[in-house]
Amino acid sequence: MGNVLAATSPPPPPTTYGVPPMSTKDDSVGKVDTSTANDLNPGPMEDLHKKCKDVFPMPFDGARLVITKGLSNHFQLSHNITMSNGVTVPPGYRFGATYIGTKQISPTEAYPILYGEMDPSGNLNSRLLHLIGDRLKLQIGAQIQDSKCVSSQLTTDYRGRDFTASMTFGNIDPINLSGVVVSHYLQNVTPNVALGGELAYQCGPHVPGNEVAVLSLAGRYTSPNNYILSGTLSNSGAHLCYYQKGGENIQVGVEVETNLRMMESTASFGYQVDLPKANLVFRGMVDTNWTVGAVLEKKLLPLPFTFALSGQINHIKHATRIGAGLYLG
C-alpha cells in the first residue's frame, strides 16, 4: 500500500538545503522546548527504514544544474535545469521557492515550511509542513498538472513521549467515493525496540472489488553496537532492512522486498563512504536484478559548488544511465 501513496503523493521539499540560522537578536523568539517531546519517541512510520534507505544512491541520468539562492534567513529561491530522457525526472526548467518560519525546534529544524516548484507550463508541486504546539505535525501536499489537481495528500503526526500516531489521506474524492486512507502507530516498548502497525484502505471504481484493505505489522531494533534491524510484514509481502555503521566513514545497508502475490523477491546491498578530508561522499548499490549503481558527490571548496557523477547499469536489460550534476549554493 505504500507504493500507492508513493505514486500519488507529491515529492517532498528538496533536501539540498538546511534550515538557515535564526536571528540572534532574541534567542527566545519562536523557540519550542522539545526536550521531553522527543524523549524515546520512535519517529513516524515512514522513517522506519530511513537509516538503511539513506545509504543507497539515487542515480539520475543526463545533465543537471541546480542553483539555490538564499534571500534572507527564512526565504530562498532555486533554479533547476535538467537535460535527460525523462525516465526519472522530466527535462526542462523548474523554479522553486522555500519559506522557513520562525518556530525553531532545533538548529536544523524550524516551522512552518512552505515549498513550491513550478515549470514553464504551469505544473506545480507544493507542500506545507507545520508544527502545531510541540507534538502535532501537519503536512499538506498537492500536485497540479495541466490545470488539474492530479494528487493531494494530508498527513498528521502526533508525537507522544514514546509513540507516534499518524493518519494520511490521499486523493480523497467524495463525489466518486475514491481515495486512500492510511493510519500508522509506532510504539517504543523498550529504549531499543519499537513495534507498530499500519492499516491502509483504498476505495474507488478502479480498485478491484471497489475497495481493498491491507494490515501490516512493523518492528525495529536499534542496537547499541551501531546496527539497526527493521521490517514490515503483511499478507501481500514483507520488507526487511539491515543497517550497519562500520566506522566513522563507512555505512552499509541491506534491503529485501518480497511480493507474495507476484511471487517475486529482490535483495539490494548498498554502502556509503564519507571522506571528510576530501569533501567527498560516495554511494553504491547492487541488487539481485543485476542492477549496479553509484553516485559520487564532491564539494568544490572554498566555492559553494558541489559536483555529482551518477551511473547505473542493468546487465540483464542492457540499460545504462549516466548523469552529471552541478549544485550551486
Rank of each mutant, 00 (worst) to 15 (best):
R159W: 00
R161G: 02
D162C: 08
D162Y: 01
F163A: 06
F163T: 14
F163V: 14
F163M: 13
T164L: 13
T164C: 11
T164V: 12
A165L: 05
S166K: 03
S166V: 09
M167R: 10
M167I: 15
M167N: 06
M167P: 04
F169C: 04
G170E: 10
N171R: 10
D173W: 06
D173E: 14
P174E: 12
P174M: 10
P174Q: 07
N176H: 10
L177A: 08
S178R: 06
S178H: 09
S178Q: 10
S178P: 04
G179I: 13
V180G: 01
V180P: 00
V181L: 15
V181M: 15
V181H: 09
V181I: 13
V182G: 03
V182K: 12
H184A: 03
H184V: 11
Y185W: 07
Y185C: 07
L186H: 02
L186D: 00
Q187H: 09
Q187L: 09
V189W: 06
T190Q: 03
T190I: 00
T190H: 03
T190A: 02
P191Y: 04
P191H: 00
P191E: 05
N192M: 01
N192S: 06
V193L: 07
V193T: 07
A194D: 08
A194G: 05
G197N: 04
G197P: 04
G197A: 07
E198V: 03
L199M: 11
L199W: 07
A200G: 14
A200S: 14
Y201C: 03
Q202W: 05
Q202I: 15
P205V: 08
P205I: 09
P205L: 05
H206Q: 10
V207D: 09
P208E: 02
P208S: 10
G209V: 05
N210A: 03
N210T: 11
N210M: 11
E211S: 15
E211M: 13
V212I: 05
V212T: 09
V214T: 11
V214L: 09
S216M: 11
S216E: 11
S216H: 09
L217A: 13
L217K: 06
L217Y: 01
L217C: 04
A218I: 14
G219N: 07
R220H: 04
R220N: 04
R220T: 13
Y221S: 07
Y221D: 02
Y221I: 02
Y221Q: 06
T222I: 12
T222V: 12
S223A: 13
S223K: 07
P224L: 03
N225F: 15
N225S: 08
I228D: 11
I228T: 15
L229Q: 10
L229K: 00
L229M: 14
L229H: 13
L229D: 07
S230E: 11
G231W: 04
G231N: 09
G231Y: 08
T232N: 05
T232K: 03
L233N: 04
L233E: 06
S234W: 05
S234R: 01
N235I: 02
A238P: 00
H239E: 13
H239Y: 12
L240H: 10
C241T: 08
Y242Q: 05
Y242H: 13
Y243Q: 05
Q244F: 13
G246L: 15
G246D: 11
G246N: 07
E248S: 08
E248V: 00
Q251E: 15
G253W: 04
V254F: 15
V254P: 14
V254Y: 14
E255S: 11
V256K: 01
E257C: 10
N259Q: 06
L260N: 12
R261V: 15
M262G: 12
M262D: 13
M263V: 14
